[in-house]
């Protein structure tokens, strides 16, 4: 434990099935886009670490996908635990996916009460054809949420527009809000992850 590592900041994706959470994940992680929507596409997506450098400070974002659990059931409460940020994702061409966000917001504030919350309208490439959610709608949502929303974004996973900018901005917000905490390393020092035991070829001698 010679070097102090800046802890990864857990960032979770929240929102209805089909709004493009896994597409955001895939853009973020591999900068790819797969068209068409099939359940298969979400398979195997768990979480992905990425480093950002913000004004001389480096911060690791660890983005988590839902694993598709929200398709029929609800997401486990443990998905939210330890999250530093949550991105509420909706589809700009689907008003229903926007109006249901208050429900997702409630789960975030219940299970990840310290997380910073961001609002992301995805599929902006489709917005022109069927504009269902406007900037004004997004603004009034933020007002209704008593300023719980730290920032809003519009993205297109298809073209890649706005995606990297969003994650960079979220990294910036987290550096700002966590500055003192990261410097003090005041994360719970007693809790740990379990890892495979070191393979010891020769059992240690007790004599």
């Amino acid at each position: 434990m010679a070097s102090i590592k800046v802890p990864e900041q857990k960032v979770i994706l929240c929102g209805e099935y089909g709004v493009g959470k896994s597409s955001l994940f895939r853009r973020y992680a591999y900068d790819t886009f797969v068209s068409g929507s099939s359940r298969q596409l979400t398979l195997g997506l768990d979480h992905y670490n990425k480093e950002y450098r913000i004004n001389d400070k480096s911060i690791g974002l660890q983005l988590w996908d839902t694993g598709g659990m929200e398709r029929v059931a609800s997401i486990t409460s443990s998905y939210y635990k330890f999250a530093e940020a949550a991105i509420l994702v909706f589809s700009l061409d689907n008003a229903a996916s926007f109006h249901v966000l208050s429900q997702h917001l409630l789960e975030i504030v219940t299970y990840a009460e310290n997380a910073k919350i961001f609002l992301c309208g995805n599929k902006m490439d489709l917005e022109g054809s069927t504009p269902q959610v406007t900037e004004a709608d997004m603004e009034s949502f933020c007002e209704q949420c008593h300023n719980l929303i730290s920032a809003t974004y519009k993205t297109s996973c298809k073209t890649g527009e706005g995606v990297e900018e969003m994650f960079r901005d979220i990294a910036y917000h987290l550096v700002q809000s966590n500055r003192s905490r990261i410097e003090l390393q005041s994360v719970d020092v007693n809790a740990f992850k379990i890892a495979p035991a070191e393979e010891v070829t020769e059992p240690s001698c007790l004599c």
């Binding site: 398979l43 768990d46 694993g67 398709r71 059931a73 443990s78 998905y79 635990k81």
Partner: peptide, 28 residues
């Protein structure tokens, strides 16, 4: 002994996520 943060209820949820990520469908 070890004990998980937020209680033992985190254990089944962790395995449920594993199942979902490998394609399991959940209905509550």
């Amino acid at each position: 002994y070890l004990y998980p943060m937020y209680g033992l209820g985190e254990l089944p949820q962790g395995f449920a996520r594993l199942s979902a990520i490998y394609g399991g469908t959940y209905m509550l």
